[in-house]
């Protein structure tokens, strides 16, 4: 047993990387749910983004184009969900589950012939001077660009929801779509845009796994990350900064668990594995502010 072999600085740094795909996907889903839509198809959109991003990167050699393609792929798939739930008024839970099934199948088909290929490397940004600062340097400043994109996304969403007029409208639509409609807002248009944004973010999250973390294409490689993203949105009670904390906690438990094991400390892995979910439920119960958007999951149809 040797706690000293765990380096807290490195632990925090690797936790930030581990949390990035879920931060990206969860940030998108947060906007979707804030608009009053529950899209359970995050896993399907992530894996679709993972393969479209991978194909684009391998074909063009540029990870940036790959990430763009992943966003387009995820958004494209989410449009299917948007069309069904917003125009054809299908049930969101069922459609979301179907979207995951569809996305897993689609990605595996698209990915045929891409197994075992290595993606071009995605260079890290080393910010001179700052990254040499002890402690904070390695934690904050020695990552690949997408880690910062994830953080920027959270800040952007926070600003958008809190200070922008469009964010206000989005929240109004999510809280009470009837009232928003009565005020003259285009509920469906806003929701479609939110859904596409969510799809694009999920696609980025998936591509982060296939282009940076692994980096290779294998069928089913998101391995449930989309479901964790869904859990984190709830854990965060639909607040951007709490989402960041939630993602780090989730990522942190996994990384810490492995760290403890490597340090030779016997821990019951299965109890640790379930702890984030129980924590999420507790947060849901305890936080009175953790109220879901009023219209979440409900079908909107403008009756005249």
């Amino acid at each position: 047993m040797d706690f000293s072999s765990i380096n807290p600085i490195l632990l925090l740094a690797s936790l930030m990387v581990a949390a990035t795909p879920i931060i990206l996907a969860a940030a998108g889903e947060l906007i979707v749910e804030r608009a009053g839509v529950l899209n359970l198809g995050v896993e399907g959109m992530m894996i679709t983004g993972a393969i479209t991003g991978f194909i684009a990167t391998v074909t063009t050699g540029s990870p940036w184009i790959g990430f763009a393609a992943a966003a387009v792929g995820g958004a494209g798939l989410s449009l299917l969900f948007g069309f069904l739930t917003q125009f054809l008024l299908s049930n969101q839970v069922a459609t979301g589950l179907a979207l995951t099934l569809f996305g897993l199948g689609l990605s595996a088909l698209l990915g045929q012939g891409y197994n075992g290929i290595k993606a071009p490397e995605f260079p890290k940004i080393d910010i001179p001077v700052i990254s040499d600062i002890p402690v904070l340097g390695p934690i904050l400043c020695s990552h690949d660009p997408m880690v910062y994109v994830g953080l920027g996304l959270i800040a952007g969403i926070w600003y958008f929801l809190k200070y922008s007029r469009a964010g206000l409208v989005l929240r109004a639509v999510g809280e009470n779509h009837e009232a928003a409609h009565a005020l003259g807002y285009h509920v469906i248009r806003i929701r479609i845009l939110a859904i596409m944004f969510g799809g694009a973010c999920a696609g980025l999250g998936g591509a982060y796994i296939s282009l940076v973390r692994v980096p290779q294409w294998t069928d089913g490689m998101t391995a449930g990350a989309g479901w964790i993203a869904l859990a984190i949105v709830v854990f965060a009670s639909w607040r951007p900064w709490r989402l960041l904390i939630g993602a780090y906690l989730f990522g942190g438990v996994t990384v810490l668990q492995l760290n403890l094991q490597a340090a030779g400390i016997a821990i019951p892995v299965e109890y640790l594995a379930m702890s984030p979910y129980i924590a999420t439920i507790l947060v849901l119960v305890l936080m009175s502010a953790g109220r879901a958007p009023g219209s979440l999951g409900k079908i909107f149809h403008a009756s005249r």
């Binding site: 490195l10 632990l11 690797s14 796994i209 692994v214 990350a225 990384v255």
Partner: peptide, 15 residues
């Protein structure tokens, strides 16, 4: 589970 395996490898390297 590629993501988890990556984490595991990193942890071992860090230690």
């Amino acid at each position: 589970d590629p993501a988890k395996e990556a984490d595991a490898a990193k942890v071992l390297i860090e230690q």
